[in-house]
């Protein structure tokens, strides 16, 4: 199982999360997003970039609430709310956005 990024194969698991986090690139994010039927725009990227920064710092994705609070600060309350996040990422900002951002899937009862 692998994504094809301009001819380079990037391995992913059964659910589409990449196995080697170091292999992430913006191009790959576009490829994953396409597989998820998402058209990446500025707002998607804001989320993905925040997730990656947060992960860099804490080795885990942020709680949805933390994510929304931050997006609210940077992009305003029209974007920074739960409903809009689900419009951006219909399968959930935590799981789907993490997948596109190349982070491991949040596990547990979430």
């Amino acid at each position: 199982m692998a994504y094809d990024v301009n001819g380079t194969a990037v391995e992913h698991d059964e659910e589409g999360y990449i196995t080697n986090l170091g292999e992430w690139s913006k191009e790959l994010a576009d490829v994953i997003a396409k597989a998820e039927e998402i058209e990446m725009d500025e707002e998607h990227w804001a989320v993905v970039n925040f997730l990656r920064d947060y992960y860099e710092e804490y080795q885990i994705a942020p709680a949805v609430r933390v994510l929304i609070k931050s997006i609210k600060k940077s992009m305003g309350p029209e974007v920074g709310n739960n409903k809009y996040m689900y419009e951006l990422f219909p399968y959930g900002p935590a799981k789907q956005a993490c997948k596109i951002a190349g982070l491991p899937k949040p596990t547990g009862c979430v």
């Binding site: 709680a63 739960n82 935590a94 547990g108 009862c109 979430v110």
Partner: peptide, 12 residues
Amino acid sequence: TPSADFFAEPHI
């Protein structure tokens, strides 16, 4: 408490 209480909605 379940760790979902630190992460998910409406758990938090």
